[in-house]
Design a protein around this nucleic acid. Structure first.
Length: 107
DNA sequence: AGATTGACGACGC
DNA sequence: TGCGTCGCCAATC
């Protein structure tokens, strides 16, 4: 692990996601220069609960625009996303393609 | 210390 | 176009 701050960087990017906008794990990993770290991003998010500053993990979904993780967690994030104006159907983001935010281009 | 799983992604068929 | 498999690195058991 050359990037001890990778986890931190992920959180930073997650916070950079505009309200009402979402991105994918791979996009973040790629933005950090670690395209193959897609899973690490996911794991980092799973560990976000222990992070002091709350991280808007709800805006981070997989390439399918699907909310992954615990059903309870999905429901919680889903609610927040809808509150931000993001339409969520079940565990998937509606119009994900339109709401997708690319950190490599916008950041 | 080692083996397994995992909140994914991309490539192949 | 859709399903299946393989590969990546790290955290957890």
């Amino acid at each position: 692990m050359n990037d001890p701050d990778f986890n931190k960087l992920v959180y930073e990017v997650a916070r950079s996601i505009p309200k009402g906008r979402v991105t994918s794990y791979g996009a973040i990993a790629k933005a950090l220069g670690k395209a193959n770290y897609s899973r690490m991003v996911g794991h980092a998010m799973g560990a976000c609960g222990r992070e002091k500053p709350p991280v808007p993990v709800q805006r981070v979904v997989n390439s399918q625009g699907q909310l992954t993780g615990e059903p309870a967690g999905i429901a919680a994030r889903k609610k927040m996303l809808e509150k931000e104006g993001v339409e969520v159907k079940g565990d998937k983001v509606v119009n994900f393609r339109n709401l997708f935010w690319d950190p490599t281009e916008e950041l």
